[in-house]
């Protein structure tokens, strides 16, 4: 089993005729994802390889029966792309686009929530259920099907953790990159709740970073609502306060959202935290007695 996506997920690619959209559509198809269509306004009726391109998401959904969409459009158009997908009845929306203004996300979130749509991102690597479906930009080959859920605010750091797990022979049920922006669609808690419900997931790796209070909320959720083991890593111990470390969300300010505070809270709530990023896989293996 897995969460959010599986072998039946039918995926649209919004922005499929752009460089990134075309490249990753091909990668997703090569991985086995059912990419049923693409959307680029003004390019309807054309094709990218075998994938039909439509002018609107509404048209694409009507023709293909897609239930998920992944967004590769540039940041100035991301808000429109997300709202269009929700309007067209898409149930799972993955926004890869980086650099979406915060006020745009504050406008999108209530619409997404009212419609009951699962939005992952923006500014994220996407979601993958190894061997079944990959929606996003993560390298598929480092993954291996299994029973460990991975949830992260980061991109390449997640690949690092996944590669460590795979090298130890520990497969993953689903990997979810929720993105590094201050306002996003899916939180750690949303993903942890889904992993707790999923019979195919027996343990979870959580990768957080400085800024905000999402890791603290996750810690409370693990203590109160989960019986599956969770281990964590928090990036940014050496980050200076008040500086934006690449991700717009990664700012620790005025003694809030620092790595040390987050690590202390996670440990207080019974979550083992890897001391270094090289220890993530081994920490999980030790926790579940494998590897």
């Amino acid at each position: 089993m897995s969460i959010f996506v599986d072998e039946n997920t039918r995926v649209l690619v919004q922005g499929i005729t752009g460089t990134a959209g075309t490249y990753h559509a091909r990668q997703m198809i090569a991985y086995g994802t059912k990419v049923v269509g693409g959307v680029t306004p003004g390019r309807g009726g054309t094709r990218v390889d075998d994938v039909p391109v439509f002018d609107s998401v509404r048209q694409a959904v009507a023709e293909t029966g897609a239930d998920a969409s992944v967004i590769f459009v540039p940041a100035p158009f991301a808000k429109d792309a997300m709202l269009e997908a929700v309007d067209a009845g898409i149930r799972l929306l993955v926004c890869i686009t980086e650099g979406v203004p915060v006020l745009d996300m504050m406008a999108v979130r209530p619409v997404v929530d009212r419609a009951g749509v699962r939005l992952i991102g923006p500014n994220c690597p996407g979601v993958i259920s190894p061997g079944k479906c990959k929606i996003g930009i993560m390298p598929g080959h480092i993954h291996m099907a299994g029973d460990v859920g991975v949830v992260s605010r980061s991109g390449t750091l997640t690949y690092e953790a996944v590669a460590q797990l795979t090298a130890l022979g520990i497969g993953q049920s689903t990997g979810v990159g929720i993105g590094g922006d201050p306002v996003n669609g899916t939180s750690f808690v949303d993903v942890l709740a889904a992993f707790q419900q999923d019979p195919g997931t027996s343990a979870v790796v959580l990768i957080g970073e400085i800024g905000g209070g999402a890791e603290e909320k996750a810690a409370a959720f693990v203590r109160d609502h989960m019986d599956k083991p969770v281990v964590a890593f928090i990036a940014g111990r050496t980050a200076p306060p008040g500086r934006r470390m690449g991700h717009a969300g990664a700012i620790s300010a005025g003694g809030q959202g620092t790595a040390e505070e987050k690590i202390a809270v996670l440990r207080d709530h019974g979550i083992e935290v890897a001391e270094t990023p090289a220890e993530i896989g081994r920490t999980l293996a030790r926790r579940i007695g494998r590897g």
Binding site: T156, E160, I207, G236, A239, M245, P277, A278
Partner: peptide
Amino acid sequence: VNGAGLAMATMDIVQHFGGRPANF
């Protein structure tokens, strides 16, 4: 480093082994 999270984590592990990062 490529990626913000990995870049922060790289600084962290350098510091863990006794070095001091000159930059992110």
